[in-house]
Nucleic acid binder design. Structure first.
Lengths: 359, 359
DNA sequence: GCAGAAATTTGAATCGATCCAACAAAAATG
DNA sequence: CATTTTTGTTGGATCGATTCAAATTTCTGC
């Protein structure tokens, strides 16, 4: 069966079937896409011919051009593809996106690339109806590249102010305040901040000057929230060290070294991501310091891993899954409008924070 | 700028640019895809026109039809999309696939669907150059559906014998033997098996009769491996209960209830997946039984979670990442041949197994 | 048996690009 | 200056389908 003409160079097209069955393209097409409108007899004949010739069914490549819609949404990042499966934050976000896509039967195309050139090409040539952008580092380049495609897109974790771009983010100022207040109420007075990047690709201590000129307003807002609240509790925020990392192992550990090398060690750490917080817990434990006995830590994000580590992490939880769902829906039912949503966050108190030691 | 004609209904096509710039569509095309062969002056003029009219660049939909290649590989499963981000096994596999795709700049399209109809449609209309199939339950339907597309595809974890289908699997018999030998050498004599599905969607105890008629030879091979080795150690395998689960929480717990409801409780459990093994550890601990003091457990798969739980899981590790890499490469450098690869597995001894208690 | 309505079928147009043989213009050669 | 070579440009053909107005066939009711 189905093998009479197999092995030939050119794959069989719908037109071949039409000719072989003695019907027009139009009818042949209808047999596959709207079988109910073609007479049963003809339908069966065409189907039989298709079967006999080994026709694979209408090629989506052709159909796509006509239909215009791919029925898939692209998720892009500047990280390697494995980021989507490794990073806890990304995974929860993808779960939310998946949910929305499953509900409508849409597919997901993962877009990324090692280098800038390839990224540009991959974004230009991605077969999708719209993009969801994971704006980590290099987020603005990603946004620029995507804008060129003139397809709907949503930026996640948007770190810069550009009101012309649809985005879903969280209330960074409020989240930071909650974290700072929690620690201040536990009577902590000596703080350190593990910060996300402010703009350029650099790591190290940050001066107030640099904070003012920060490109990523997300980072700046969290800093502002922390300090505003600490001030309310009478903490001299000019003495709080801020160390900017790349949100990964190496620079975070370097930051901790630097922070604890100074004279007065902090009793509380404000980390702008759970990732850094988790690394910090590990680093402190390895150094013989007790968490939260010696040092309390509050993270930011609310990834599942935070609940499983020892001690479980106190953190500012973002509604990650919900953000993913909304982002996907924004693309799926896109109406041309630019939308900017800010989601609320929540303090989740676990065991990585405790009262400041007397002294 | 770039907004002169914005807001119009029809998006700008390459032909519009060509006309506006006073060149042929062939030249206009070259400006974008092979800029080096067009005279600088013309090139700049066309680019300027494109910019002015807000042209988004050559539409991949059109390009695709001509080029024929999508440069993306589809990964399909019958589970919901979130499976790719939730399941530890799938995640490690995806990391391997990602690696291979990153290396060649290919994209990944995730294909799945809640119901059968939609699955069929999604596979038929996926814009990919080939498929990698996660053959969990319902794997054969997935294979049949995919075969219709007449695109290259590889089945992973292939559970049934079909020599016409490319597949990558592991040496199930050998893995099962290793697991059984390890426990037998620890002087265990009373066993129970938590089995993956044999074919139909059912759960419950399995009779030797059912094993013989199993559709999934993967499951059957593991069973064969377990029993062959246990027999060598003088264990009466007819007395070893086999409980078939759906590899998830509910049926696994039901299986454990059933197994431990019997007269003589086993001192060792052979689980055909780490997932079941992990659930078993949890169930046993909740029941006040010590692992490995009262009951030893060996899993199968070698997912990272197994190393992190308490106690860390002894297991048969598959080279999951490598399988993913190879599968992706099989599609990426497809040459028309059917390939079937069997990878070796490895016993990883951790703390979930210990010597059998005297008595 | 026939007009008019309903159901099918047809085939040209379209979707948005790339490819390539043929042609034109410019540059190099004799 | 005529001829070859090089370099650029053109426009028709093609990729593989769907759509839709018009043409044709089949069905109804009388």
């Amino acid at each position: 069966m189905a093998s009479l003409l197999e092995g030939q160079a050119r794959p069989i097209r719908l037109a071949d079937i039409a000719k072989a069955a003695g019907v027009s393209h139009g009818t042949a097409s209808n047999v596959f896409s709207r079988p109910e409108i073609v007479r049963a007899e003809v339908r069966e004949r065409v189907k039989a011919v298709a079967e006999r010739m080994g026709y694979a069914g209408p090629d989506p490549k052709g159909r796509l051009l006509r239909a215009g819609k791919v029925n898939a949404i692209g998720v892009a990042t500047t990280e390697p593809l494995s980021y989507f499966f490794d990073d806890p934050f990304a995974r929860v976000m993808m779960a939310g996106i998946s949910e929305a896509c499953d509900a409508t039967g849409a597919g997901i195309a993962l877009v990324s690339a090692a280098n800038q050139e390839k990224l540009a090409w991959n974004i230009q040539s991605a077969l999708v109806d719209g993009f969801i952008l994971f704006c980590i580092e290099g987020g603005s380049r990603l946004v620029d590249l995507t804008r060129e495609r003139r397809l709907p897109f949503v930026a996640l974790e948007l770190g810069f102010q550009d009101e012309t771009v649809s985005a879903i983010g969280v209330d960074n100022v409020d989240g930071a305040r909650l974290a700072a207040r929690h620690l201040a109420e536990l009577r902590h007075r000596r703080f350190a901040v593990l910060s996300l990047t402010l703009g350029e690709e650099r790591t190290g201590f940050v001066t107030p000057e640099m904070v003012r000129s920060a490109i990523y307003t997300g980072t700046r807002d969290r800093l502002a929230g922390y300090f505003e609240e600490l001030s309310r509790f009478g903490v001299d925020t000019t003495k709080v060290p801020i160390y900017e990392t790349e949100n990964e192992e190496k620079s975070t550990r370097a930051g901790l070294e630097a922070i604890f090398a100074g004279g007065e060690a902090p009793t509380a750490i404000l980390a702008m991501s759970d990732r850094m917080a988790l690394i910090a817990i590990d680093w402190l434990k390895a150094r013989g310091l007790d968490v939260p006995g010696d040092v309390s830590i509050v993270g930011f994000d609310g990834v599942p891993d935070g609940a499983l580590c020892t001690p479980p992490l106190t953190t500012i939880a973002q509604p990650i899954t919900e953000i993913g769902r909304r982002a996907a829906r924004m693309i799926l039912d896109h109406d041309g409008a630019v939308r900017r949503e800010t989601m609320g966050v929540e303090l989740i108190v676990r065991a990585s924070t405790g009262p400041a030691r007397k002294g």
